[in-house]
Amino acid sequence: MLSIIVRRLAISIVLILVVTFLTYLLQSFLPGDAARAMLGLTGSPDQYQAMRKALHLDEPLIVQYWLYLAGLLRFDLGNSIFTQEPVAHSLAVRSQVSASLVVGTTLVATLLGVGLGMLSVLRGGIIAKILDVFALIAWATPGFWLALLLTTAFSVAIPIFPAIGYIDFEKDLGGWAKSLVLPVAAMSVGGIAAIARITRESMSRELEKEYIRTLRASGVGTGSLVWKHALKNAGLTIITVIGLVFIGSMLGTIFIEQVFALPGLGSLLIDATRLHDIPVIQGVALAFTLTVVVVNLLVDLSYTWLNPKVRTS
């Protein structure tokens, strides 16, 4: 069990290095450099050289990367080329919105997904078929388009929810919840379908296994077979998919935050992309990667908790 955690940590460190290095490497392809971008057209050659030195742009790339990594350990992610704001600060400010969206989406997708999946396991037949169709359509519908359709329906045609904007939950809890309804709804449909489908598939697979037959022959009732034995065995697969839904919805915020004009990490990233603001892109990449690392770690931990083979090895 320990070896799995150690391996996961080792892989995580490599992952963080790979992502930071990739984003760092990319900027060397950028025509012009940060010093030029910051000074604009007005800077003199002397000022330019001084700025290059201040930003360590005169050093070899690998040294620059090393300095960047060293900065990371001090929570220094550099400054935005355009606003000069520290990237770490922008990330901190923006992450509340994205976290609300992603956690909300994952919760909704898990509850409804597992619920729907179990319903179709217990009822079978027509519900299972409907679920299949729903899963296909949900997968095929781009989140940003669904978001626009929902907006048309529930803020334009029937104005219940705000079409755009985010309200801080410390200021107005009800408003915060209301501002999240449409984006979370648009993002969670795909997750609900994915989780419901995997729940049904893995549960059906478990319920056909011989240990279930043996327990049934011993007199154990359907309730215990489904909710205790099969569900715990199927749990391994379901949790993996929940982890994927979490990561998927994190990436989904990139599109959804644009639709609803939410000031989260996703819109920060898009703005930075349009402005070629590399330090900010690096910062968001790092934040997203760290989230992936944590989610994977949690999934691994739940594995060891659910699977005795892992725990006892």
Binding site: I11, T23, L26, L251, L269, I270, I281, T289, V292, N296
Partner: peptide, 23 residues
């Protein structure tokens, strides 16, 4: 296999946006 595991964990959309920002 280990390389694949790492690459698949990369939030690919972010890298794609970085590529777009550059190119």
């Amino acid at each position: 296999s280990t390389t694949i595991e790492i690459v698949l964990s990369i939030p690919h959309l972010v890298i794609i946006l970085a590529v777009l920002a550059i190119f």
